[in-house]
């Protein structure tokens, strides 16, 4: 008589293997980004409430704990971007009779694109801040 033993997935499955722990670390980068999004939204809300409220919010940003959290959010975003771009050539395969792009070129193009966009955004912000003065 058959009596197969059904193995149930344990709640701590992701702690039991280094590959799963790395995966969960990558997934967890969403949490600091959630924090950063909420912070920005609260800033926008304070902005709608008038100058004094917004200046109070700007003052709050100087809090060392918030500065540290910004550091964590930046590190998480960079880690996510770097590991994501490393995976892109696996997904974006350009190999047809007419056009063929090597996986390394696909990855480099994404890296260059990410740097150009981020530096461009930074320059734009600096330009706007400079122009506002």
């Amino acid at each position: 008589m058959r009596k197969p033993y059904v193995q149930r997935q344990r709640a701590d499955w992701w702690l039991r293997n280094p590959a799963y722990r790395r995966y969960m670390l990558r997934e967890a980068t969403a949490l600091p980004l959630l924090f950063y999004t909420l912070l920005l939204m609260s800033g926008l809300y304070q902005f709608t409430r008038g100058e004094a409220a917004f200046l109070g919010w700007l003052e709050l940003l100087r809090n060392p704990w918030l500065l540290a959290l910004h550091g964590v959010a930046l590190a998480a975003a960079l880690f996510h971007a770097v590991t994501w771009i490393a995976l892109v050539p696996k997904i974006l395969v350009i190999d047809t009779d007419r056009l063929r792009v090597s996986p390394t070129v696909v990855k480099r193009l994404h890296q260059v694109g990410a740097v150009v966009c981020n530096v461009g955004l930074l320059l734009l912000v600096l330009l706007l801040v400079g122009g506002g003065r």
Binding site: A19, Y23, L87
Partner: peptide, 18 residues
């Protein structure tokens, strides 16, 4: 969800995650 461990353990380097 692109855990990717399938590709690491594949004995024939099939790369199922890709």
């Amino acid at each position: 969800t692109f855990v990717g461990y399938c590709s690491q353990v594949c004995p024939k380097d099939v790369d199922p995650a890709a």
